[in-house]
């Protein structure tokens, strides 16, 4: 059975994510998953075998903190080296419109593999826009509440008590998104090609044109070419 679509070098390809975005994404993925599994040790109220993987409960706590710090540095790295990329990302999210709603309406069918007709999408489709908003918000909440829980003595006691449920709720919503997101960005036959965009940086032009018509047109289409020539 084929899991990922083949990476084809001999067809026209277009850039989707630059190096900074890709390093951020994968650095984030690794630290997020480490935080998740070391955190679940406590969330599930003491799962000894999961703790044992990280060398016991104090080991899990240490891994959680080290990953948390690296995750924070990755976010800083992204802000420093590709601030423009973040702005463009936000701008694209703000373009949420009718076509995104239409996308979200047919998405459950597409998710399960039924052939559906999808209106042209911008750089990020309706689902990716939703994922961007929910995941980023949750990660920001996780970072803020996490540091409060780490150093409770320097924060008001009321904040610490709020941080506990916030950390757990944000963890659950981020993880729910990641469960579906990671699958869509890899083994889902329809969107699997996007994996190469995040791994190698480029996607097949025909795939881009098909899945993100508006973005493709604006960035690599005829009009964009002539604009650049001028």
């Amino acid at each position: 059975m084929q899991l990922l679509p083949e990476y084809k070098q001999d067809v026209p390809r277009v850039e989707r994510f630059n190096m900074v975005a890709r390093l951020t994404h994968w650095g984030h993925t690794v630290t997020f998953l480490l935080c998740l599994f070391t955190g679940l040790v406590l969330f599930l109220d003491g799962v000894d075998w999961l703790a044992a993987i990280f060398g016991g409960y104090s080991g899990a706590g240490l891994v959680h903190r080290i990953s948390a710090v690296i995750m924070t540095l990755v976010i800083v790295f992204f802000v420093v080296f590709d601030f423009k990329g973040i702005i463009n990302w936000i701008k694209d999210i703000l373009r949420f419109g009718l076509n995104d709603i239409k996308f979200l309406l047919v998405f459950p069918l597409e998710f399960l593999g039924f052939p559906v007709k999808v209106p042209p999408q911008t750089r990020f489709n309706g689902g990716e826009k939703g994922n961007s908003i929910v995941t980023s918000t949750c990660v920001i909440l996780l970072v803020l509440s996490g540091y409060i829980m780490w150093f409770p003595a320097i924060f008001p006691a009321g904040w610490v008590r709020v941080a506990y449920p916030v950390h757990d709720i944000a963890m659950v919503f981020a993880t729910v998104m990641v469960c579906m997101h990671a699958y869509l960005g890899s083994f889902h036959p329809g969107s699997g090609e996007s994996f190469w965009g995040m791994w190698k940086g480029t996607v097949r032009s025909d795939w881009a044109e098909h899945h993100h018509a508006t973005w493709y047109e604006e960035t690599y289409g005829e009009k964009a070419q002539t604009d650049e020539a001028e």
Binding site: F111, L112, G113, T175, V176, M177, P189
Partner: peptide, 13 residues
Amino acid sequence: ALAGSATSFVTTR
């Protein structure tokens, strides 16, 4: 969410 993705993995194929 995991179950949803697993279902999709099977049905898409």
